[in-house]
């Protein structure tokens, strides 16, 4: 447990995370609606690499696909996301 997790202290915003806008009328970070593993998700990520980091899978053993096409790990940084994109994020599993 880190110091920030202790209940007797006020919890600061998580480092690196974008805080939700307080005034909803004012547009801030462009939030994209994408489909990740079959579920509609709003994201602040602009690239596939940022999306992976946002989901805390930066260090995970995963592979990715965008709109049905494989995206190698090395190309996630340059892979821009657009509204409505369908992303698959997969990991090793038991199989027959």
């Amino acid at each position: 447990m880190t110091a920030a997790d202790k209940p007797d202290r006020p919890t600061p915003p998580e480092a690196g995370k974008i805080v939700a806008p307080v005034r909803p009328m004012q547009p801030t970070t462009a939030s994209l609606s994408v489909v990740i593993n079959g579920r509609q998700v709003a994201t602040n990520a602009q690239t596939l690499a940022q999306l992976v980091l946002e989901r805390d899978l930066g260090e995970a053993k995963i592979a990715t696909a965008l709109n049905g096409d494989f995206v190698p790990a090395g190309r996630r940084c340059e892979t821009k996301l657009r509204a409505g994109d369908a992303i698959e994020i997969v990991a090793p599993r038991q199989g027959g």
Partner: peptide, 11 residues
């Protein structure tokens, strides 16, 4: 033999 399946956030 092995397979791959969708990985949840933080899993």
């Amino acid at each position: 033999t092995v397979s791959l399946r969708r990985e949840g956030a933080r899993a």
